[in-house]
Amino acid sequence: MRVALFVTCLVDMMRPSIGFATIRLLEAAGCEVVVPETQTCCGQPAFNSGDRASAALLAKKVVAEFEGYDYVVAPSGSCADQIRNEYPGLLSDEPDWHRRAVALSPRVYELTDFLANVARLEILPGDFRGSVTYHDSCAGLRSLGIRRQPRDLLARMPGVELREMPGAEECCGFGGTFSVKFGEISAAIAEKKCANAATTGADAIVGGDLGCLLNIEGKLRRMGDETTRVLHVAEILAGDE
């Protein structure tokens, strides 16, 4: 099957290695991976900030670029949710675009959901050794039902010990543009997340959305924690190249 990778704007700029880890996982699952070159951003920052026109502009671009593939996979529950669950409503005023968004919607997946439920990847290429604690990102968890998928995948890795933190399903305080509009509140919420993660003593905090991970890592470092690693689940599952 032909799978188009939606890299996400954050991975593109901040941590391209997550994008390459995603490709390795999809290829390990037997997919033919295509990376549409003209892709940029799903438009969620505009959508969540109330700029519907800008969000619709980018939504159409994504639909046009990605509708020709069997599946679209993103290493982010947030972006996958935007394309899968928000585009149809966002484009509801334009019947043709609406129809195309609806047709694309069920083929859009967050990475771990796709690996666990569609591609059914059994053997994971990664060789991470150590303890990890998993942070559930909000959109993935509450809009796409991603809870078991990453944990089941991690459980198949003999070197990984999963330790659940209290409040794993609570928001880390990132919230997209919220993090730069209400920095103090956002950082205070992140502090609670870091404290909860610390109770597990895990070597790494792992999640499926880079926005949350940047928030958590930034807070950890500011709090003086120099050792706890903050990794995207794709990086653990795929291992180093």
Binding site: V11, R15, P16, E37, V180
Partner: peptide, 21 residues
């Protein structure tokens, strides 16, 4: 500026995915 009031901002890896790919 609001981001770094209460936390650091992790540095990017150095090149975009687009370039590397």
């Amino acid at each position: 500026p609001e981001w770094t009031l209460g936390r650091d901002f992790p540095a990017p890896e150095g090149k975009t995915f687009r370039e590397l790919y």
